[in-house]
Design a binder for these strands. Structure first.
Length: 794
DNA sequence: CAGACCAAGCTTTTT
DNA sequence: GCTTGGTCTG
């Protein structure tokens, strides 16, 4: 008991020792919330509460795992249910599937499955989508589910044209899901919420079963989640929620800030505990966060404070473009690791969009910095993995139409689009699964005998696979790959693309199956495996045990902390994102997102912006985020990297936009400079440049006072001017410039860090021309336009 | 019907 | 820049 309460502050003890009755913990960032929650669970158990009556619900598996580990230390071996909302609902639904019109082996569609299903429903509904799009309809229906709007309710109450279309599609989409014995992500919550509402007895049973419920990140709950939690806390109102209105960043997913703002109204007997002391960040960082979030109108004022030592000033850094931003940050991290004994795991780079991680990834890789990316293009989205998964899904649930569609002709076996279309029609008309239609192929109108034979052959393969359904996953998968000749198919289709990764992925997938078998010797069913796969998020891939730099989105970073944090692309249109800045609510949510990012940092924080940003292939001028103007500018350390060299090939307009760069754009096509702006009076010239570019740059968006411009620190990324006074391309060539074309395979080069090496290959062109160089300590890649290589011998 | 080749569209954020 | 979807040819 002492161990549980030891070292906690007054308010933390209050929260931990509260057992019965509603509890609201308003916890600012870094206030030890997880600690409070885990200690509270341990305390409850120590006070005699049965662990099996406690359910702790989180939003991510990562958060649940962390909680499980920490509770495990405090109260070993106690079976407290912990997991995500979706997993919680998936398990309830498994149990009570018939109440929702499902069988207990129902499948969970992932987002791409849902997308396919939606397209099919739109077709079947025979609606015109000329004034809307599948995405819009999907999002309307998703929102409806999150607000517990049923198809019937929507049919009666909508007016907007898009809604009318969606209202027509919705019932058909739902019907098709039921026919497929499947649910989408929203349904997991939706079905359970409706089930609780319609079955009072079940509701009260479960209310008693889960006497104590804890909900983490309560500010992110939507109406469906609210209804579920509420429904389970009527007879036993022992509901403890934690959250921070300032960290609500899932409004787009239907999260309703009012759920937390009104908690005290919902439960008048609530005990509210505020955790405002921050144990994570330096006062410098906290001031920046606080100043920013004060600009939100929709919030409860909260006073964040800390007793931590004053630390380094927060840095605002200005780069030329995204590539330099990536290189600059990678360089800094490299230096900090080398010079200050930091570890790669101490660093996180956060961005608004996954797409921004690409150049960062490149920069890290070229420096040999170990990194992990937490993003969307992950394992289970790969084609080959999705194929195999689809087979498994179909084995587990013969009604899984999306899976059927995916695998029926993979590997190709003579079943074409027309045949599939006819099967689909038959299935739609008769409301049977497509596999069923395939079994009845000879009754399906319009299918040629030849095609029907192929379909029958597929059904036979399927039936053989089905017999193995209860084998271990490993056996099943190996048999599947064998039986479908899947590897041969991969080899054939990738022979010209030199992409051997597909087969490696299949092997990795089998390893994952082996691992699952090992971890679940008793309950390792196919169903359990598929559910686990469906409910793991990309963010769950985060491994804090690995010593790597972490790259992720701001959303994925919630709940984490790092000694050093870089937030990239703090620009108009990116943060706030252009799709979110139209409404006040959207704009404020972006501000909260920025707030979340800032408060991840313990010791150091760097925000960066670029003058140009390349999005979707084309480069355009970037404008600093209006949020920057809301920060305490006078205490930020502003750093602008001097233009090392510029490169405007492939972008004829660029020199018009940035006339100050250099007037050599014409000749610069094939020239790379080694380490200098080529500007004779670098210091003055650059200062002038900065003034010219930065003044309008800031005046519009940030209103940075002129006096502060002078304080902008000039940082040279690479060697200082070595050959001043260059005027012409010819001069440059003589004066240490090396044309990109001078690099060939076999060229001997010298690098300032890696020493001497040999070019072993050249790829790309223009600014992207890249050399792979072998040094004594391994290979490194250099973009020649930016590389600091010196040619020794051609 | 398969496979190759080309055009369009599109990316916030996640369970 | 990349993926998806469509079209064309064998």
């Amino acid at each position: 008991m002492d161990a549980i309460l030891k070292g906690l502050t007054e308010s933390q003890v209050q929260a931990v020792t509260h057992i019965d009755g509603p509890l609201l913990i308003l916890a600012g960032p870094g206030s030890g919330k997880t600690r409070v929650v885990t200690h509270r669970i341990a305390y409850m158990i120590a006070q005699g509460v049965s662990p099996s009556q406690i359910a702790a619900v989180t939003f991510t598996n990562k958060a649940a795992d962390e909680m499980r580990n920490r509770v495990g230390e405090l109260a070993p071996g106690k079976p407290v249910w912990m997991g995500t909302f979706h997993r919680f609902c998936a398990q309830l639904l498994r149990r009570y599937a018939p109440l929702a019109g499902l069988s207990e082996n129902y499948s969970i569609y992932d987002s791409s499955d849902s997308k396919q299903a939606m397209k099919r429903a739109i077709q079947a509904a025979e609606v015109s989508i000329s004034h809307t799009s599948p995405e819009q309809i999907a999002s309307t229906i998703s929102n409806a589910k999150n607000r517990l709007v049923t198809p019937e309710m929507m049919a009666s109450g909508s007016s907007r044209t898009g809604d009318v279309v969606a209202a027509k599609v919705y019932p058909i989409y739902q019907q098709q899901l039921l026919t497929a014995n499947a649910v989408d992500f929203d349904d997991l919550l939706f079905h359970v919420a409706i089930m609780l509402r319609n079955n009072p007895e079940l509701r009260s049973d479960l209310d008693a079963r889960f006497r104590y419920i804890l909900v983490d990140e309560y500010q992110d709950t939507n109406l469906a989640q609210y209804a579920i939690v509420r429904g389970l806390s009527i007879d036993n109102a022992n509901l403890a929620v934690t959250g921070d209105p300032d960290q609500s960043i899932y409004g787009w997913r239907g999260a309703d800030l009012n759920n937390i703002l009104d908690f005290e109204k919902d439960y008048p007997a609530v005990k509210t505990v505020r955790l405002e002391q921050n144990y994570r960040s330096t006062p410098n960082i906290l001031r920046v966060a606080d100043q920013l979030i004060r600009h939100n109108r929709q919030r409860k004022q909260k006073d964040l404070y800390t007793h931590n030592q004053e630390g380094d000033a927060v840095v605002l850094r200005i780069f030329e473009d995204g590539y330099q931003e990536a290189d600059g940050i990678a360089d800094e991290i490299t230096n900090a690791i080398r010079a200050e004994g930091m570890r790669p795991r101490d660093f996180a780079i956060l961005c608004r969009m996954n797409a921004l991680t690409r150049s960062l990834e490149h920069s890290m890789r070229s420096r040999g910095l170990p990194y992990q990316i937490i993003n969307g293009v992950e394992f289970y989205q790969r084609k080959e993995i999705k194929d195999l998964l689809a087979y498994l899904h179909l084995i587990n649930n013969p009604s899984h139409d999306v899976a059927f569609h995916r695998v029926v002709n993979v590997p190709t076996r003579g079943i074409g689009a027309k045949t599939i279309e006819r099967l689909r029609r038959y299935a739609d008309v008769n409301q049977v699964p497509m596999l069923e239609a395939a079994r009845n192929v000879y009754q399906v109108e319009g299918i040629a005998k030849r095609s029907a034979t192929f379909v029958t052959r597929f059904v036979e393969i399927y039936d053989r696979l089905s017999k193995k359904a209860s084998a271990t996953l490993e056996d099943l998968l190996r048999y599947l790959v064998e039986e479908t000749k899947y590897e041969a198919f991969l080899e054939k289709s990738t022979v010209d693309q030199q992409d051997s990764s597909a087969i490696a992925n299949v092997d990795e997938f089998i390893s994952a199956a082996v691992e699952f078998d090992r971890q679940h010797p008793e309950d390792g069913t196919l169903e359990a495996f598929l559910e686990q796969v469906a409910l793991v998020a990309d963010t769950d891939a985060f491994e804090d045990s690995d010593d790597r730099v972490t790259l992720m989105t701001l959303h994925a970073a919630k709940g984490l902390e790092f000694p050093c944090v870089y937030i990239v692309g703090v620009e108009q249109g990116l943060l706030p994102h252009s799709r979110s800045m139209d409404t006040d609510a959207g704009f404020e949510e972006e501000r909260r997102l920025f707030f979340v990012g800032i408060t991840r940092a313990m010791q150091r924080l760097q925000l960066s912006i670029c003058k140009r940003r390349t999005v979707r292939g084309d480069t355009r001028p970037a404008v600093p985020s209006p949020f920057l103007n809301e920060l305490p500018l006078d205490e930020l350390r502003k750093v602008e990297s001097v233009v090392d060299r510029d490169w405007f090939d492939e972008d004829p307009d660029a020199d018009n936009q940035y006339p100050e760069s250099w007037d050599l754009a014409d000749e610069s096509d094939d020239i790379v400079m080694n380490g200098d702006t080529g500007n004779g009076d670098t210091g003055n010239g650059d200062a002038g440049e900065v003034h010219e570019t930065a003044a309008p740059f800031f005046d519009e968006a940030c209103q940075l006072p002129e006096s502060e411009l002078a304080e902008i620190v000039q940082v040279k990324k690479r060697k200082p001017a070595s050959v001043p006074g260059l005027k012409t391309a010819a001069d440059m060539l003589n004066g240490g410039m090396t044309p990109v074309t001078a690099y060939r395979e076999g060229t001997q080069v010298r690098h300032i860090e890696y020493g001497e090496g040999t070019v072993i290959s050249i790829t790309g062109r223009g600014p992207k021309r890249t050399a792979t160089v072998r040094f004594d300590d391994g290979e490194h890649h250099f973009r020649l336009a930016f590389a600091n290589l010196e040619v020794i011998d051609v």
